[in-house]
Amino acid sequence: MTVDSITIKMSGRIFNSVDIISRYIDIILAAKERGMRLAIVTGGGDTARRYIEAGRQLSLSEAANDMLGIGASRLNALLLIYAINARGGTVHPRVVTSLEEAGEAWLDSGLVVMGGLQPGQSTTMVSTLVSEYLGIRKILNCANVDGLYESDPAKDPKAKKIRRATIDEAEKILERSAEVVAGTYELIDRWALSIMKRSGISMQIIDGRSPEMLEAALSGRDDVGSIIVPW
Results as ranks from 00 to 15, higher is better:
Met1Trp: 05
Thr2Asp: 00
Val3Ala: 09
Val3Arg: 13
Ser5Met: 10
Ile6His: 02
Thr7His: 08
Lys9Ser: 04
Gly12Ser: 01
Ile14Glu: 11
Phe15Lys: 04
Asn16His: 10
Val18Gln: 13
Ile21Arg: 14
Tyr24Leu: 00
Ile25Asp: 05
Ile25Thr: 06
Ile25Val: 09
Leu29Asp: 06
Arg34Ile: 07
Met36Glu: 11
Arg37Lys: 15
Leu38Asn: 06
Val41His: 02
Thr42Asp: 06
Gly44Arg: 06
Arg50Tyr: 00
Arg50Gln: 10
Arg50Phe: 00
Arg50Cys: 05
Arg50Gly: 04
Arg50Glu: 03
Gly55Cys: 07
Arg56Phe: 01
Ser59Gln: 15
Glu62Cys: 05
Asn65Phe: 06
Asn65Gln: 15
Asn65Leu: 13
Leu68Asn: 03
Leu68Glu: 03
Ile70Pro: 03
Gly71Met: 15
Ala72Gln: 02
Leu75Asp: 04
Asn76Arg: 04
Ala77Trp: 02
Leu80Gln: 03
Ile81Lys: 11
Ile84Gly: 05
Val91Asn: 06
Val91Gly: 04
Val91Met: 06
Pro93Glu: 00
Val95Met: 00
Val95Gln: 00
Val96Asp: 01
Val96Arg: 07
Glu101His: 14
Ala102Tyr: 03
Gly103Asn: 07
Leu107Asn: 14
Asp108Val: 14
Leu111Ala: 09
Gly116Tyr: 02
Gln118Gly: 02
Pro119Ile: 10
Gly120Gln: 02
Thr123Tyr: 14
Thr123Lys: 13
Thr124Ile: 07
Ser127Asp: 08
Ser127Cys: 08
Val130Cys: 10
Gly135Val: 12
Ile136Ser: 08
Lys138Asn: 12
Cys142His: 08
Asn144Leu: 13
Gly147Asn: 08
Gly147Pro: 09
Gly147Asp: 08
Gly147His: 07
Ser151His: 14
Ser151Ala: 14
Asp152Glu: 09
Ala154Val: 10
Ala154Glu: 06
Asp156His: 15
Lys160Pro: 13
Lys161Ser: 02
Lys161Thr: 10
Ile162Asp: 03
Arg164His: 14
Asp168Ser: 15
Glu169His: 06
Ser177His: 13
Glu179Gly: 13
Glu179Ser: 15
Thr184His: 15
Tyr185Ile: 10
Ile188Asp: 05
Asp189His: 12
Arg190Ile: 10
Ala192His: 10
Lys197Ser: 09
Gly200Pro: 03
Ile201Met: 02
Ile201Gln: 04
Ser202Pro: 08
Gln204Asn: 01
Ile206Met: 03
Gly208Glu: 01
Arg209Lys: 10
Ser210Pro: 12
Glu212Lys: 15
Glu212Ile: 15
Ala216Ile: 12
Ala216Glu: 13
Gly225Glu: 02
Pro230Ile: 12
